[in-house]
Simulated assay, not measured.
Amino acid sequence: MRLISWNIDSLNAALTSDSNRAVLSREVIDTIIEKDADVIALQETKLPRKGPSKKHMEHLAEYFKGYSYVWRNSQEPARKSYAGTMFLYKDKYSPEVFYPEIDVPDTMDLEGRIITLDFGEFYLTQVYTPNAGSGLKRLKERQVWDEKYAEYLQNLDKEKVVLATGDYNVAHKEIDLAHPQNNRNSAGFTEEERQGFTNLLDKGFTDTFRHIHGDVTDVYSWWAQRAKTSKINNSGWRIDYWLVSDRIADKIVKSEMIDSGSRQDHTPILLEIDLQLEK
Rank of each mutant, 00 (worst) to 15 (best):
E58K: 14
E44N: 11
T116N: 07
P95F: 05
I40P: 09
Y63G: 07
F64P: 06
T85K: 03
K92Q: 13
L110N: 10
S74R: 10
K80G: 06
F64N: 05
V104L: 07
I102Y: 11
K54A: 15
V39G: 04
E58T: 13
K46R: 14
Y69S: 12
E62Q: 11
D30C: 08
Y99K: 09
D30G: 13
E44V: 10
N73I: 09
E62L: 14
G51A: 00
R79W: 07
V70E: 03
F122R: 04
D109R: 12
D36G: 01
Y67F: 11
F87P: 07
D103G: 13
R79Q: 14
D36N: 15
F87I: 03
P52N: 08
L110T: 09
A61N: 15
R72H: 12
G84A: 05
D106L: 01
P100R: 04
V39K: 06
K54W: 00
E34C: 11
F87E: 04
E101W: 11
E62Y: 11
A78Y: 10
F87L: 08
Y89R: 05
A37S: 10
H56G: 01
G51H: 08
G84D: 09
D118I: 00
Y99L: 10
Y69N: 13
D118F: 01
F119E: 05
D91E: 15
P95H: 01
L47F: 01
R113Y: 02
N73R: 09
E111Y: 07
Q43Y: 00
Y67D: 02
S53F: 05
I32C: 09
D118L: 00
K55E: 15
F64I: 01
I102L: 01
E44H: 10
D106R: 12
K54G: 00
E34H: 05
I32R: 06
E76F: 08
L42M: 10
L88P: 03
A78N: 03
K90R: 14
F98D: 09
D36T: 08
F64K: 09
S68W: 01
L42E: 10
L42D: 04
V104C: 12
L60Q: 03
R79I: 03
M108R: 05
E121I: 01
Y99R: 10
E62K: 15
V104P: 03
S53E: 02
I102W: 12
S68G: 00
K92C: 06
T116I: 02
M57S: 13
S74C: 05
T107W: 06
P105R: 15
D38W: 00
D118V: 02
D118T: 08
Y63L: 14
V70K: 00
S53N: 00
T31K: 14
T107P: 07
A83P: 00
E96W: 07
P100G: 04
L47T: 04
K35M: 14
L88Y: 07
K92I: 12
P95V: 10
I102A: 04
T45G: 11
L60D: 11
K55S: 03
L42V: 07
D103R: 12
Y82R: 10
H59V: 02
T31M: 02
Y89V: 02
G51T: 03
